[in-house]
Amino acid sequence: MAFREAFAKAGAQILEPIMKVEIATPTEFQGNVVGNVSQRRGTITGTNEELGTTTITAEVPLSEMFGYATDLRSMTQGKAEFTMEFCKYSPVPRNIQEELIKKYGDKVNQRG
């Protein structure tokens, strides 16, 4: 159909939800926490140190946030906390887009 054909020609792209994440951690664990955020394709947008607690704000894709509560707990001996809220939609990296398309294709084929 016209729409689908045009869509395919128009450089179609997948967008993913990005969350604004705020993490409050004892400063001693800051390095680990920041490193872990980067591993999760996050970008740090700010850090603020006060009274031994560092507050890190970051933008992280929601798809990378599954199980974060558990990870953060074990990284910081349960002393850190985080909150997150929706921030925006952004394009997913090319390799992930391909992966997602392949997975979807497999699922559709399976269904027959």
Binding site: A10, G11, L15
Partner: peptide, 9 residues
């Protein structure tokens, strides 16, 4: 997650 699809050109 709730993905979306869009176009670039």
């Amino acid at each position: 997650v709730a993905y979306r699809e869009t176009i670039t050109r």
